[in-house]
Simulated assay, not measured.
Amino acid sequence: MSDLLERLRGRGWRMTSQRRVVAEVLEAHHRPLPADEVHARAAERLPEISRATVYNALGELVALGEVVELATDGRAKRYDPNAHHPHHHLVCSRCGTIRDVHPTGDPLAGLPPEERFGFLVSKAEVTYRGLCPSCA
């Protein structure tokens, strides 16, 4: 069983076949996917799954904090299953492809105290932008 499925069961999330397939699709790809792609991949496994069911399951996973909803540059929202693994994102400026990256070091170390404006900073979310190999 996947980490995501184990966490969801541990939290008492009712595991219907539709919810399970959505979680399995997210866990299998380890990268942010748009809802339409989650639906398409889920429908390969469970043809009767509706788009509304996928959107509802994604919304519940976001509300539980098990999936992160990403919105970049006015494109379709993506759903990142790696909510419990610290990482940043690499985004293609042309096609919108998103990949998780795991650079070393503390991103907060690069923010000098005078640039924190009194904020008690607890987390940094870094997005790198450029062109993916297909668009370059």
Rank of each mutant, 00 (worst) to 15 (best):
N56D: 13
E27D: 15
R11T: 02
E69D: 09
N56E: 14
T72C: 00
H89S: 02
G105D: 08
E6D: 13
V101K: 04
L8C: 13
A43D: 06
S50H: 06
D100G: 11
G74E: 09
M1R: 03
F119P: 00
S50T: 14
V21F: 07
E48T: 11
A52W: 01
G130E: 13
G12Q: 02
R51E: 15
L111V: 15
L120H: 13
G96Q: 00
R116M: 05
H29M: 06
E44D: 12
Y128G: 07
A71F: 00
E114T: 05
V91T: 03
L111I: 15
R20D: 04
Y79D: 08
A52Y: 01
Y79L: 06
G105E: 00
Y128P: 00
S122T: 12
H39I: 02
A136T: 09
L111E: 05
E69Q: 14
P34D: 14
C92H: 07
L58P: 05
V91A: 11
K77E: 11
V121Y: 09
A76S: 14
F117M: 08
V21M: 11
L58N: 05
P112H: 10
H29G: 00
L90D: 14
K123W: 03
R9E: 11
A35C: 04
V22Q: 10
L111A: 11
V67I: 12
F119A: 13
K77T: 08
C132F: 05
R129P: 00
M15Q: 06
K123E: 14
P86A: 12
R19F: 11
L46I: 05
A109F: 06
H88Q: 12
T16Y: 04
R31A: 12
R78M: 06
R20W: 03
P47R: 01
E125L: 11
L46H: 10
S50I: 01
E24W: 01
M15S: 01
R41S: 03
S50E: 14
C132A: 02
R45M: 12
G110A: 13
P81H: 12
A76E: 15
D100Q: 10
L90M: 09
A124Y: 01
D3R: 09
E6M: 06
I49R: 05
E125D: 11
S50V: 02
G59S: 12
G130H: 11
S93H: 04
P103V: 02
H29E: 13
A76T: 05
P133R: 04
C92W: 04
L33T: 09
P113E: 15
S50Y: 01
D73Y: 01
A40D: 14
P32T: 06
C92G: 07
H84C: 05
R19W: 04
P47Q: 06
E69S: 14
G110P: 00
D36E: 15
T16S: 14
H87I: 03
D73G: 13
V25G: 10
L111R: 02
L5E: 10
R41V: 02
D73C: 05
D3Y: 07
T16N: 03
D80L: 09
A35E: 13
G110Q: 01
D73L: 10
C92D: 07
C95I: 07
P81K: 11
G130L: 13
T53A: 15
R116L: 07
G110Y: 07
R31S: 05
V21H: 03
G65N: 14
K123H: 13
E115G: 05
L5F: 01
A63N: 11
G10K: 02
H30F: 10
V25E: 11
H85C: 00
H39W: 15
